[in-house]
């Protein structure tokens, strides 16, 4: 899941500038699941904005609408019909969703209410941890299911570095497990240490230019004539 967190109210108000009529567009996808940009968070955000603006003389009209996903046109019928009545859209989608809306309505300022943080999983309700940097060349099969790109502070492929602490934590933060300490422990438990005793050569980074994916069965459909 893509995990995001809300920008400060001050930053959002700065982005809104002099706009008086704003559509606050929630997303029912990832940012809803990570409790940052779904229906409830949109309602809370509007309440906070209202209260703040009221303290300063008012004059901001907000309309709330949460659609199923902001990254697919199928879900935009309601939003498209409303947008023309507003000076700006404040989106609580991830960075992809914000761009999707902006591309759909190029004449309108489309503003992010969130900072998109990472791809991760749930540690508890409202608590998430990064686990994937979408590097485009997954090594998890050889690292015991622990990502060295994401979880090693230096993204080492032949770790651990010399900074692993005595308790097996990272030199950067003594509360964070050293990824390579964990990789070693897990592979040892599986009897597969041979996977990390050979030198892993320098990799080709696949995420240095914008990527697109067309799944194999659909290649014919999108083939250029």
């Amino acid at each position: 899941m893509i995990v995001a967190s809300r920008k400060s109210l001050d930053e959002i108000l700065g982005l809104l500038g002099s706009c008086k009529k704003v559509l606050v567009l929630g997303c029912g996808g990832c940012t809803s699941i990570c409790l940052a940009g779904g229906q409830r968070e949109v309602r809370d955000l509007c309440a906070e904005l209202d209260a703040r603006v009221r303290d300063h003389g008012g004059g901001l009209t907000l309309h709330e609408l949460t659609i199923e996903r902001q990254c697919n046109e199928t879900f935009f019928a309601d939003a498209d019909a409303l947008v023309k009545d507003y000076e700006a859209v404040l989106s609580t989608a991830c960075g992809a969703g914000v761009q999707f809306v902006a591309e759909r309505h190029p004449a309108l300022p489309v503003l992010p209410a969130l900072n998109t943080a990472f791809v991760g999983f749930d540690k508890g309700v409202g608590w998430y941890e990064e686990n994937c940097r979408t590097c485009g060349d997954c090594v998890l099969g050889e690292t015991g299911g622990i990502c060295p790109v994401t979880r090693c502070a230096k993204s080492l492929f032949n770790g651990p570095c010399g900074g692993t602490r005595s308790e097996g934590t990272c030199e950067v933060d003594k509360t964070v497990p050293c990824a390579w300490f964990e990789i070693h422990k897990r592979l040892k438990g599986q009897g597969r240490l041979a996977l990390i005793t050979k030198v892993r050569p320098a990799r080709e980074w696949e995420n240095q230019t914008r990527r697109s994916v067309i799944q194999e069965p659909y290649k014919a459909r999108y083939a250029k004539p």
Binding site: A153, L156, N158
Partner: peptide, 23 residues
Amino acid sequence: SGDHQSFGDHPKCKGVFDIDSIQ
């Protein structure tokens, strides 16, 4: 490999780590 940038005088700089010390 090098000490992590967070220890230094520009702690939020972008660490490169394109390749590691063994590479």
